[in-house]
Amino acid sequence: MTINIAFLKLAAYFAVLSNAELDVIKQAFSEKTFQRGEVILWEGEMSDVLFFVAVGAVKIFKTSSQGKEQILSIARPGDALNDISIFDGKTNPVSAQALGPVTIYGIKRERLQIVFQQNPELTLNAIKVLAERTRHLFTLVEDLSFRHVLGRVVKILLTHAGDGGGPVQRLTQQEMAAMAGTAREVVARSLKALEEQGYIRLENHRIVINDKESLQKILTDTI
């Protein structure tokens, strides 16, 4: 197993180091592989190794007390999975599951501390990385907790709905997110919530509105 510095460079925490510096610190890392569906980290558990994605995609999610899963983001190569619990020494706030074959690089907390001490520029950079993430999470929290986003998603559905007769404009969840001014994850959650209420049905490449009246009511209630 050799650690590839091209993958280390993808990680925002280490991207500020030169190839020569990365070559020195790479000994501190280990590699782990996971298959589709394998859980890499569980919410509520302690971590003593900082994990980040080298290859593949990882689902970052929380599970509610009713067992409902809320996807918060997709981690791609370079993204850290448990930086928060590594830095504050508490439990993982989220779980992480491999969406396909995934290669993870890990570095033990104690080794990470030494690497940070030897490369002081990493500390300032880490603050920047964490601040950027915090900003993103603030936006997500705002959108998840306020009903206006649900209202905007409903409005998009009603405005773009056809009667199944003629050709209609098709929309992706990404496009709906851009229209509603939110993240794709929030649109996905809104659609799921509407489906759970029985207002819509998600079929293969079709969103079927089966309770238009209730959707219109959400619209008037959230304006």
């Binding site: 773009h160 056809g162 009667d163 199944g164 969840q173 496009e175 490449h205 079709r206 969103i207 509105i209």
Partner: peptide
């Protein structure tokens, strides 16, 4: 992955 939105 685009969706067609239809009213039933």
């Amino acid at each position: 992955c685009s969706f067609e939105i239809v009213i039933e």
